[in-house]
Design a protein around this nucleic acid. Sequence first.
DNA 1: CTAAATACGAAACTCGTGTTGCGTAAATGT
DNA 2: ACATTTACGCAACACGAGTTTCGTATTTAG
Lengths: 199, 199
Amino acid sequence: MTPRGRPRDTQVDERVLRAAAALIFERGYAGLSIDEVAEQAGVAKTTLYRRWPTKDHLAVAVVARLQADHEITETGDIRADLVDNLDKIAAALNRMRAAGGREGPSAGVAGELVAAAARHDDIGELARVQYAERNALGIALIERARARGELRADLDAEVLFDQLAGALYYRVLITGEPVDRAYAERLVSSALEGSLTCQ
Amino acid sequence: MTPRGRPRDTQVDERVLRAAAALIFERGYAGLSIDEVAEQAGVAKTTLYRRWPTKDHLAVAVVARLQADHEITETGDIRADLVDNLDKIAAALNRMRAAGGREGPSAGVAGELVAAAARHDDIGELARVQYAERNALGIALIERARARGELRADLDAEVLFDQLAGALYYRVLITGEPVDRAYAERLVSSALEGSLTCQ
DNA sequence: CTAAATACGAAACTCGTGTTGCGTAAATGT
DNA sequence: ACATTTACGCAACACGAGTTTCGTATTTAG
């Protein structure tokens, strides 16, 4: 069941993604020019647009290749497991934030990707599926700790994970504050131990 | 100390912002065309660019006018106070999300504004100051509840507020899930009560 | 009244994204 | 072989953001 016409040149994808990655990580999202990518990849612009219909789609493809979806580690200690997985999320966010040689509090490429998902339904749908999968893994991790008796029985696992991951994204995208392992530890402590005086 | 030359026509700001607001709320961010705004406002494009140097700046000005910064209410019951203030944040997010007649899980204009803050340092700086003020109000609210003895003494107020606000932004910008008062209540319950089995 | 300073308006311009039309290349089915 | 289908490359194009140039209008300083 090979398709009818001339097959696509598989080298095109590789060369374009490589050139685009070089540009986006050197000059940032605004410095990523489609014409320049096409030229550096030695490919016609029309060929490029056949694969990625907009600059946003191309940028998402570039970043997606580099975010090797991190494996979830599980030691059996929920505190350590949560810190570890949040730290991996934070690392991925920091990589995107730093693209383009940026330093300050700006969200960098991470902010552009949020807009890309808001602009194009297909990108948004794809991203939400990925996030849903990651959320499900985190929730499952929490549920298993609850089954072991580490966590309280009436816990809201979905909300708990939103609180943890959400705080990281909030700082990177909104307030511009740094996120690192130390922050992940504060976060997990606060969420697990609660804030009410002892009941 | 009036400045030297011809004074600016104050009607220009009003007419431009009104025209831009109409366009952005009817057609969304992509449907906001500078040429069209200038035409509908009866103003030359150069005049418009003298006030707002980019489309992003204009869009931020439009949205900023509509987000009458909500007053913080305080009843003395920290649970009710947090739910109330989170609900106001959620309402503002939902307004931005719905601009342009959008319905689905997309972040809508909210996503574009995140990117605008990432692209332009001055917008980012302005936004971060606003967020810092709002965070400070939330943290102060929490601190007063702690002083009253409602909350535990060793609590991390900064992280607690990140958890609450962050979960809202996470759902709107990232996972696309809805945020409403019911969710705010789940959120506050989870954060206040913690997740560990009783210590 | 005159000069300097600033604002407004109109038109032409640059630049980047994305599209279109057309000629050519490489595969399949009969 | 030959028609069909799809991919590639090239050039021209449409469109919107943002800039530049220049003429005109309105204000203050002297």
